[in-house]
């Protein structure tokens, strides 16, 4: 039972039976849960790859079938909400660094801030969708509208799931169930969050900015 001390520091959630025993007991030195998240994100790249390709194929509606991308996008508005989402990556980093220092008060603040910024972004998306709908672009209006709503909608769902994970972490932390030795959990949620942000950068550039 010489490992007891080590165990207390490396305990993680997840199903990893090895992680209880020895720090870095894995062959790669990366914990199972973190490696699994990396693999999942690699797979997600192709999901968004497929959706973005579909959008690029259908980015121009047939003539007479509702507005096209550059008649309808409000670039300044979306730039602001993109900036908000980018800033949430910063607060996410701060949250990870807070729990690694054992600063639980700051952890809660930054987790809440990240979730809030994510929420602002989602609200912006809801507002944007509503505005587009009022301007006559419904989901079924044209091939462009279907592709646009599907791509950005998928991203929105990913952000929403991220927010739920952040709120769960916040809840755990408030209940006292998120000690320093679980900091990797926060880090892994962070990985997901940064990935979703990076995907948005690509979507923002490809969908909104490239004429």
């Amino acid at each position: 039972m010489a490992d007891t001390a080590v165990v207390a520091q490396t305990h993680e959630i997840g199903d990893d039976p090895h992680a209880h025993a020895v720090h870095h007991a894995t062959n790669t030195g990366i914990s199972n849960t973190k490696l699994a998240m990396w693999l999942f994100l690699a797979s997600e790249c192709l999901l968004f790859g497929g959706l973005i390709s579909t959008y690029l194929l259908y980015r121009n509606p047939l003539p007479g079938e509702g507005p096209g991308p550059h008649e309808i996008f409000d670039i300044p508005f979306t730039s602001v909400s993109s900036f908000v989402l980018l800033m949430s990556s910063l607060t996410m980093v701060l949250a990870v660094s807070a729990i690694e220092r054992g600063d639980h008060q700051r952890l809660r603040i930054w987790l809440a801030a990240t979730a809030l910024l994510g929420g602002v972004f989602i609200s912006g998306q809801v507002y944007e969708f509503t505005a587009f709908y009022r301007e006559g672009m419904g989901y079924t209006t044209s091939r462009f509208s279907s592709a646009f709503y599907t791509l950005t909608g998928f991203h929105g769902v990913h952000v929403t799931i991220g927010i739920l994970m952040l709120l769960s972490l916040l809840f755990m932390s408030l209940r006292g169930n998120l000690p320093e030795n679980k900091s990797e959990t926060v880090e892994i949620v962070g990985l997901y969050w940064h990935f979703v942000d990076v995907v948005w950068i690509v979507i923002f550039a490809v969908v909104y900015l490239i004429p």
């Binding site: 165990v7 207390a8 090895h18 025993a21 007991a25 000690p179």
Partner: peptide, 17 residues
């Protein structure tokens, strides 16, 4: 016996029902 899968007692983090 020190075993990779053996969970030593005395761990502090298992709080959730």
């Amino acid at each position: 016996m020190v075993d990779v899968l053996a969970l030593p007692s005395g761990e502090q983090t298992r709080t959730e029902q």
